[in-house]
Simulated assay, not measured.
Amino acid sequence: MSQSKRRVTKLKLLANFFENIDIISIYIKTDIIHNLFQENKALDYSKLELFHLQYTDSLIELLTKIKRQKESDMLAVINEIDVNNRYVVNFEERRVDSFETDRKMYSGIFSQHLANLYKDLTEERFTIDWNNVLYFNKKYATEFYREADEELLKSGPLPSYHYQDYEIERKLLGRLNIQNFKVRFVCGYLIGRNEYELFKIFQSDDHFIFNVEEKKMYLIDEQLEKLDISENQSNQTTIINQLKKKNEYLEQTMNEKKRTLPAEVESVLKDYLRNLENMDIMSKIFDFNEETNILRAMLNLNLNN
């Protein structure tokens, strides 16, 4: 009986692994047969051993082989999930969390820079340091600035003021003056090595581009609706979100594949279950009318209830 119990336990573990209704039903019926012999000492245990040899052992061997193959496939998926999780954890530990705060501070710094530029132009002097505003793209462009159609960001020759090596469109400077040079950094673009920054003038619908590479600032209007002007997101964050979604997908498909059996195995299981439910076969196994009637009653239990 102890050997029979070990077989039933193995079958239960396999049923729990596959979560297949037919395997679960087979386990329940096999456990009923085991309990019938356990509770009726007058029954011949050799009949139970014969039953296991003819049915249970072959089924356990088949399902164990399939389980090993699935575990091997699952291990590869689990390893991929683990690698993805390690990347996510490592990045989140070193992620730059200051971008949003710095973006707001940069808007104020750039506003003051423009006010100083205007003052220098009116007084015909050159005192400002461009590094006061160039620090931002150097720190964040690679990770946060997005790609775009560069033609939408460029501008042809425009009437401009020249300050050191930089140019600022005359119309832009006039509109900045009206709003006291208050601007908000909207987002940045990175095309190859060329960096562009989009600003919005306070209390207006006016936007302008700071072309870092060409050292120019100019208004942008019609092209704006064709650009993505949402707040910049870390490209590493995008990758992390993709990895998390991929892991969710891998875990879902892994569980689905674990439960999926080849069609021929499904067919064998259904035949196996029908044999267990076939009272003629059970009669030959037990050879006792009284016990067979008991077993018939037990096997006819409504398992759905």
Results as ranks from 00 to 15, higher is better:
residue 24 I to E: 14
residue 109 I to F: 08
residue 99 F to P: 01
residue 296 R to G: 00
residue 68 R to F: 08
residue 299 L to W: 09
residue 45 Y to N: 13
residue 263 A to N: 02
residue 105 M to R: 15
residue 300 N to P: 01
residue 283 S to R: 14
residue 87 Y to R: 10
residue 268 V to G: 00
residue 112 Q to D: 11
residue 282 M to R: 04
residue 122 T to E: 08
residue 224 L to W: 01
residue 150 E to K: 09
residue 124 E to R: 06
residue 255 N to Y: 06
residue 223 Q to I: 00
residue 249 Y to P: 00
residue 162 H to S: 13
residue 143 E to R: 10
residue 119 K to V: 04
residue 218 Y to D: 04
residue 165 D to V: 04
residue 250 L to C: 03
residue 114 L to F: 06
residue 184 R to M: 14
residue 136 F to H: 06
residue 237 T to V: 13
residue 119 K to R: 13
residue 236 Q to V: 10
residue 42 A to L: 00
residue 45 Y to R: 09
residue 110 F to I: 09
residue 235 N to A: 05
residue 54 Q to W: 00
residue 82 D to I: 01
residue 118 Y to E: 10
residue 119 K to P: 00
residue 100 E to D: 13
residue 73 D to L: 08
residue 235 N to I: 14
residue 75 L to F: 10
residue 215 K to D: 01
residue 87 Y to W: 01
residue 274 R to V: 12
residue 86 R to G: 01
residue 204 S to Y: 09
residue 44 D to A: 02
residue 179 Q to C: 12
residue 178 I to S: 07
residue 250 L to H: 07
residue 39 E to T: 14
residue 92 E to D: 11
residue 175 R to C: 06
residue 235 N to G: 03
residue 121 L to W: 02
residue 156 G to C: 04
residue 38 Q to V: 13
residue 24 I to T: 12
residue 284 K to R: 11
residue 190 L to W: 05
residue 128 I to G: 04
residue 9 T to I: 09
residue 169 E to R: 05
residue 204 S to N: 09
residue 184 R to H: 15
residue 264 E to S: 05
residue 13 L to R: 15
residue 42 A to Y: 12
residue 244 K to T: 08
residue 178 I to D: 13
residue 38 Q to E: 15
residue 242 Q to H: 11
residue 131 N to S: 10
residue 100 E to C: 03
residue 268 V to N: 05
residue 89 V to D: 13
residue 290 E to M: 00
residue 211 N to F: 10
residue 23 I to T: 06
residue 241 N to F: 07
residue 232 N to G: 05
residue 37 F to C: 09
residue 275 N to M: 11
residue 135 Y to S: 07
residue 136 F to S: 07
residue 205 D to K: 12
residue 80 E to L: 05
residue 196 Y to E: 04
residue 301 L to I: 15
residue 63 L to E: 02
residue 214 E to N: 15
residue 21 I to P: 03
residue 114 L to M: 11
residue 185 F to S: 10
residue 298 M to C: 07
residue 304 N to A: 12
residue 79 N to Q: 12
residue 287 D to L: 14
residue 55 Y to G: 03
residue 30 T to S: 14
residue 203 Q to F: 11
residue 220 I to Y: 01
residue 120 D to C: 02
residue 279 M to E: 05
residue 95 R to S: 12
residue 274 R to I: 12
residue 221 D to M: 06
residue 208 F to A: 03
residue 15 A to L: 03
residue 59 L to N: 04
residue 206 D to A: 12
residue 234 S to Q: 06
residue 232 N to K: 06
residue 292 T to F: 00
residue 291 E to D: 10
residue 97 D to E: 13
residue 280 D to A: 12
residue 118 Y to V: 04
residue 131 N to Q: 10
residue 273 L to M: 08
residue 238 T to Y: 08
residue 180 N to Y: 08
residue 194 N to H: 10
residue 109 I to T: 15
residue 89 V to N: 11
residue 35 N to A: 12
residue 7 R to F: 06
residue 66 I to D: 06
